[in-house]
Design a binder for these strands. Sequence first.
DNA 1: CTCATAATTGATAATCATTCTCATTTTATA
DNA 2: TATAAAATGAGAATGATTATCAATTATGAG
Lengths: 130, 130
Amino acid sequence: MNYSRQREIIFSALKENVVHPTAEYLYSVLKEKDPNISLATLYRNLNQMAEKGLIKKIDGLESASHYDHNTHEHYHFICKKCKKVFDISSNVAPEIVVKTKAETGFEIDSYDIVFSGLCKDCFEDIKEEK
Amino acid sequence: MNYSRQREIIFSALKENVVHPTAEYLYSVLKEKDPNISLATLYRNLNQMAEKGLIKKIDGLESASHYDHNTHEHYHFICKKCKKVFDISSNVAPEIVVKTKAETGFEIDSYDIVFSGLCKDCFEDIKEEK
DNA sequence: CTCATAATTGATAATCATTCTCATTTTATA
DNA sequence: TATAAAATGAGAATGATTATCAATTATGAG
């Protein structure tokens, strides 16, 4: 990853922002420092830095929403390789909610836990490939 | 909510699908049962049913991703009203990961917990409005 | 320092999921 | 059965993000 002035200002703008900004908001901030910066450059750099672990991208699954007829409390696991979504039964969560409510004073009315990684099948596949 | 044949087949298609389908996938299944069904009808009904709690919509925050320079382990809380994203410190999560790994055998390499509800300020605002 | 190569950029078109619009049809009920 | 409310289908519109591509910039060897 070569140096670029644009990446530099993107990273520092992100560090100076307490509220986790969206790309659009960052763009409005960045244009003040560099009126010529391109939206494509911003997205490119955000993705790059997120890949390298320099920043974190907060979002859900991939782009498309998934729908579930099971409305009971449970979590989801999405496999990075095959993109399948699996149910994970819930038996730890209530504690998290109670604890988080106490710590923050926020009114929590829902939460989602999404794990990601490799499902069993894809993990086997990758082992075989080696 | 009035009865509609389309909603009926959407709901049953969803129940018959083990893997949590995307709208696009559901659409391809549904067209076999009703070649005239519209994508708009599908989305409309999925949103409606999710609102009524008949099904669950699995996705992250709102549409746009948020970015975070804090790469330490922590969760997020998104306020339904002001849409701000807050950090929630982590001190329960490792147990969840260990437990989930043991139960499923999946290779979990990351997970996100996103709480949603009302932040303190918005909760106060709403109380005052009453 | 200077050239060659790879990385990066800006501008804009393209994509993809989703929502909106609106005229038409269906459902519920008085 | 008449009427109002709800739902539909088709396609346009939107919003976030990614892809394309020619031009610019960074880097490392000589």
